[in-house]
Amino acid sequence: YLSLCLYPYPQAELGLNEHHQNEVISYMRFARFKRGLCLKTVDSCFQDLKDSRLVEETFTVDEVIDMLDGLRTVVHSEVESELINTTYTNVLLLRQLFSQAEKWYLKLQTDVSELENRELLEQVAEFEKSEFTSSNKKPSADLIKPKLAPLNEGGSELLNKTVACLQEENEKLKTRLKTIETQATAALDEKSKLEKSLKDLQMIQGDQKVNIVK
């Protein structure tokens, strides 16, 4: 009962390791910032309408319709622009991930249908709530992390070691193959000699039988 009082909701997790989860948090922080800017832009559209058009005490129906149509056009344009920008941003994020994977000759796959999974979306929402609510905000010092080296630099040492190890193993296999080839050649030569000796012996035995008959 005590644990339920202290932690009424389970800690939201995404099933990722610590490094990848921190990367997700970093992206969510960026997305929240962009979302806040978009909402401020929408708010400013309404404020501009109030400041520029709502200067009279009464309006005709046509005037109200005209103001609402104008507001709809402005808001539609702002929201559409932000949605397009969000799409392009997500494409750039995927491009980063795929580029890193291709450097390791990996092929990643995505399941677009999972993007509409309500259960997973609620899990992400709970995760965001647990990470960004005021009671759970981390100190600013914890939010500063060193920039990771690009994979083609930070991972080059590991890649070079892997290549060197594979080359060494390849040389061992080549040496072993040559040994097996030598042994196989010697075995074939020995087989040929035995077959020749057997034929010679059979010929001698045949000649001896002929002489006995005579």
Rank of each mutant, 00 (worst) to 15 (best):
T110V: 09
D111A: 11
D111W: 07
V112S: 12
V112T: 10
S113L: 09
E114Y: 04
L115C: 12
E116Q: 11
N117G: 01
N117L: 02
E119S: 07
L121C: 08
E122V: 00
Q123S: 14
E126K: 02
F127P: 00
E128V: 03
K129V: 05
T133V: 01
T133S: 15
S135T: 13
S135L: 11
S135A: 15
N136I: 01
N136P: 00
K138G: 02
K138T: 14
P139R: 08
P139Y: 02
D142Y: 09
D142Q: 12
L143W: 06
L143C: 10
L143F: 04
I144H: 11
I144P: 02
K147L: 13
L148S: 07
L148D: 05
P150H: 09
P150L: 02
P150C: 08
L151Q: 03
L151R: 04
L151A: 14
S156P: 00
E157I: 05
E157A: 08
L158D: 10
L158W: 14
L159I: 05
N160I: 06
K161H: 09
C165Q: 08
C165M: 10
Q167K: 15
E169Q: 05
N170H: 09
E171W: 04
E171Y: 08
E171H: 10
K172G: 06
T175H: 10
T175K: 15
R176H: 08
R176G: 05
R176Q: 11
K178S: 03
T179D: 05
I180R: 13
I180F: 12
E181F: 03
D189M: 04
D189L: 07
E190R: 12
S192P: 00
K193T: 07
L194N: 15
L194K: 15
K196V: 02
S197A: 15
L198I: 10
L198A: 15
D200K: 12
